[in-house]
Structures are given as structure tokens and as C-alpha cells.
Design a protein around this nucleic acid. Structure first.
Length: 410
RNA sequence: GCGUCGGUGGUGGAGUGGUCUAUCACAACAGACUGUAAAUCUGUCGGCUUCGGCCUUCGUAGGUUCGAAUCCUACCCGACGCA
């Protein structure tokens, strides 16, 4: 018996998109679905009850962060992440592969998950100059990655096996293979080299996982596809990860699509990969979650998304998603605006508070502001994706997409 | 009434003869944020601007000086002390 089951209910005619049901040991997820990010065993500002209340089905925690603090052994003793953080629903853990990137090639360089090269402040530096200056906290070797803890400076070595061991201790329903998320600033030669390494690490992750029968029966393992912006590498990676087997014939239970992108490359990369991946297994687009990207992903066959944007935008300066686009609640015009953030929104924040009140909380630096804005943003994106699911089942996804972008401007 | 100290841009508070439109912090205003190094970060913050500058500011009014937020005089205001 496999730890998860995935059934497709309905497809978008003429596209890769589909609506499905993902069954895990801790419950089902109606896909496509938005995954709430809870890196350090907490979705920032949200109790599990609030997550449930706003329609959250599943959360994603982080291997690297929890290994450093409080330690995966401690979480194992606590009875696993579900018990430790009080979330009894479906849960995934990321492998630490993103930190290879964010604490490595991207460290101190202002490079993030999605780059906007049209913005002059985000010009992609040449590789030669990208290596100057700031010392990295993550250094890649062929066997694994050395991390210098961003908390206390201590040195740690993470291998694919170590990532699996940590994720076994954490005990999420779905875990990810250890990968290297590459920067779009790397040239093709490096992308290729990194891809071979990611594939080798994927195989080691798969082998290690299936050597631990207890875990393999309770935790699903997703392989991660990389390959940057290059079509050949992306397709090759998707095929290779999809066909990867242990000696006993065990395979990945699903797939992650990873990488740091230029905005324009995102669409093509997702399409190339999903054209190659086997239809019957779930696909997770790692770290993506702006509304326009969610539509693109769903249309192109992505089943799961996670993104820090809703909580980070909410918490930092009260930037909230609305049907008309982003609203920055601290802008002067909202100080005496006694309407809800969105009058037709069903979230707790919109049903109970005004823009003026939220503006006040942010100006006064009261933590409830961050919480209420997070509630709204998580609701907005979660609800947006679940509405896309309904529309796929109704057969009206294209109409819904068109209607959404008639009012939404970024 | 006498004495002492002090009055700097929205606020607090640097500066004590030229490099001063005046450090810094806060507030304000605008922006960024996509597998969280993030309750973080960036920019603006006297007026005008053809963005090269120009004009006006450090309680008020005079004065010294090539040059004053900085020195002198008078006045106004505040705190404290003494009558």
C-alpha cells in the first residue's frame, strides 16, 4: 500500500490542467490546492485552527530550518511534526534544497525565486561578478552541502541521506528529495552540472527512503525536477526523475518542479516539465503563488502550490491581495476608510474589520494587523485555487480566468 | 527683578566660523517581497528645477567677518536657581 493515492476527477479540455483528489495518511487534499508555508513549524501568525477556518488543507515545513532549530530529534521525540505543531491535517516538508540556493548562490545578492529583469534593480549579474564579495553560507560539494548556520554560525553538512533522515524524523506525509535549486544567473554549462548532481541526489534520496520501510510506507517521496530555463534540460530532468527506480523498483510518489526563474521563463518551464511527467502522479510547483502564476500553473497541470508571498506580504507592510490587485493598507487613503478590505470576501478579517482599523494596527505596529492581513491573504489565494478547481469540474476554467483578469491588475 | 543654562527642519536630538539644506533616530510618504537568512528591506523626506543647479532656512532683529546654525549686541520665549 502506497502512502498516498491520487485520483484525477476532471481535466481542462485542450490543456494540461486537472482537478483531483490526493489522499494522505492525515486526510485528503482537493487539488489543485494552495499549500500554506509553515517553515519553522508554524504558518507565521496563524494557529492551526485559523488555518482550518480559512480553508487551509495542507502545510509545508522546512527540513533545514527545523534541523537547526529545535532539531529533528526533538521533534521525533515530540511525536513528529503533526503532534508538535498541532496540525493534524496533510503536511509536507521541503528538503533544504532551496536553502542550498538562498544561502548559497543567492546569498546577499538580491536574487530571489522569481526575477523581473525588466526592473533595472534586478539586472542579472554576470556569473563572474556574482561570485564576488559576500561569503556564502552554503557551499556545494558533489556528496552534499556545507551549511554555515545563519543562526549561530555553526557548520553543518547535509547530504541527500541526511535530508531524508531529518524528514523521517519530522514525519510529514509528503517529503521531498534533496536537490540544488540553481540561480538563473548560472550559465547552461553549470545548470547541466547542477542537474546531474540533483539527479544523483534524487537517486540517493529514493534509495535511502526505501531502505527505511517504516517511513516509506507512511511518507510519500516527491522527486524534484530542475534544469533552469533550458528546454532540453527541463524535459530530460522530468523524464529522468519520472523513470528513476530503486533496485526493487520503487519510484517517486509525485514530483516537485523547482528552480529560480525569470518571470517569463516560468510558464514554459512548467509546460515542458508537465508534458513529460506521468499524468497519474501529483505535481507540486515549488514556491510559486502570485495569482497570475497560479492560473498559469493550474492550466498547465500543476496540482499543488506553496508560497510565502501571502504571509510575508501581509506581515511586512500589510500588502493584501484583492480582486482588483494588491492593496497596501498603510497608504494614506485607507486611514479613514471604514469599508472592509474586500466587501464580498468571506474571510474572518473582511467579515469583522475595516480598512481603517487595519491601517491603524499597521501604523501602530500592533501584531494583530499582521495576523489579520495574513488571514485575508491566505484565504484569498487558497480560495482562488479552490475556485479554479470548481471551475475545472464545471468546465468553465477559461471563462473564470478571463473574468478574473478583467479586474485584477498587479 | 537678578543670575545660570538653553531655543536647530513634523518630533527628539547632533553640529559650535568655511567641506551645512545641516549627521542620526523617529514619524510621515512611496515602493519591493514568489520551496521564509524577512513582524524584513529600499527610496523620498525646505521650495523650485530644462536635474546642471538656483533660491530660502538653525527664536527675532541688527552687527563682526571674505564667509555665521556656529562669534557679538539687543529683544522675545523656556527651564532652573536666588530675591
Amino acid at each position: 500500500m502506497k502512502p498516498i493515492q491520487f485520483a484525477i476527477e476532471k481535466k481542462i479540455p485542450g490543456a494540461l490542467g486537472r482537478a483531483g483528489v490526493l489522499t494522505t495518511p492525515h486526510g485528503t487534499v482537493m487539488t489543485p490546492a494552495f499549500v500554506s508555508v509553515g517553515t519553522k513549524a508554524t504558518v507565521k501568525g496563524m494557529t492551526p485552527e485559523m488555518l482550518r477556518g480559512m480553508g487551509g488543507q495542507i502545510t509545508l515545513c522546512n527540513t533545514y530550518h527545523l534541523y537547526l532549530q529545535p532539531g529533528d530529534e526533538l521533534i521525533r521525540k515530540a511525536g513528529g511534526l503533526h503532534a508538535f505543531m498541532g496540525w493534524d491535517g496533510p503536511m509536507m516538508t521541503d528538503s533544504g534544497g532551496f536553502q542550498v540556493f538562498s544561502l548559497g548562490a543567492a546569498y546577499g545578492k538580491g536574487i530571489s525565486k522569481v526575477l523581473h529583469p525588466a526592473d533595472p534593480s534586478q539586472q542579472i549579474p554576470e556569473r563572474s561578478s556574482a561570485d564576488d564579495g559576500v561569503p556564502r553560507l552554503a557551499t556545494i560539494g558533489n556528496d552534499g552541502v556545507s551549511f554555515r548556520s545563519h543562526i549561530d554560525g555553526s557548520l553543518h553538512y547535509i547530504t541527500p541521506e541526511k535530508s531524508m533522515e531529518i524528514q523521517h524524523n519530522l514525519g510529514a506525509d509528503i517529503i521531498f528529495a534533496f536537490d540544488e535549486c540553481t540561480s538563473p544567473t548560472e550559465e547552461r554549462r553549470y545548470q547541466e552540472e547542477a542537474l546531474y548532481r540533483t539527479h544523483a541526489w534524487a537517486k540517493r534520496s529514493l534509495d535511502y527512503h526505501h531502505n527505511k520501510e517504516d517511513n516509506a510506507s507512511r511518507q510519500a517521496l516527491f522527486g524534484i525536477v530542475q534544469g533552469g530555463r533550458d528546454e532540453e534540460l527541463r524535459r530530460m530532468s522530468a523524464k529522468e526523475i519520472a523513470e528513476m527506480r530503486t533496485m526493487e523498483g520503487a519510484e517517486f510518489d509525485g514530483f516537485g518542479i523547482g528552480g529560480s526563474f525569470e518571470k517569463d521563463d516560468l510558464h514554459s518551464a512548467v509546460r515542458w516539465v508537465n508534458e513529460e511527467l506521468p499524468e497519474e502522479k501529483p505535481r507540486h510547483l515549488l514556491g510559486i503563488g502570485e495569482p497570475e502564476d497560479l492560473f498559469m500553473g493550474v492550466e498547465n497541470g500543476v496540482d499543488l502550490f506553496d508560497c510565502v508571498a501571502p504571509t510575508r506580504n501581509a506581515r511586512s507592510t500589510g500588502t493584501m491581495y484583492t480582486k482588483e490587485g494588491r492593496m497596501r493598507i498603510m497608504n494614506t487613503k485607507y486611514r479613514e476608510d471604514f469599508n472592509p478590505v474586500e466587501s464580498d470576501c468571506g474571510c474572518y478579517t473582511c467579515k469583522n474589520f475595516t480598512r481603517a482599523y487595519l491601517a491603524h494596527l499597521f501604523h501602530a505596529k500592533e501584531m494583530l494587523g499582521s495576523i489579520l492581513a495574513s488571514v485575508h491573504n491566505l484565504y484569498f489565494l487558497t480560495n482562488l485555487v479552490s475556485t479554479m478547481r470548481e471551475k475545472i469540474i464545471e468546465g468553465t476554467f477559461p471563462e473564470f480566468k478571463k473574468e478574473f483578469f478583467e479586474s485584477y491588475t498587479k
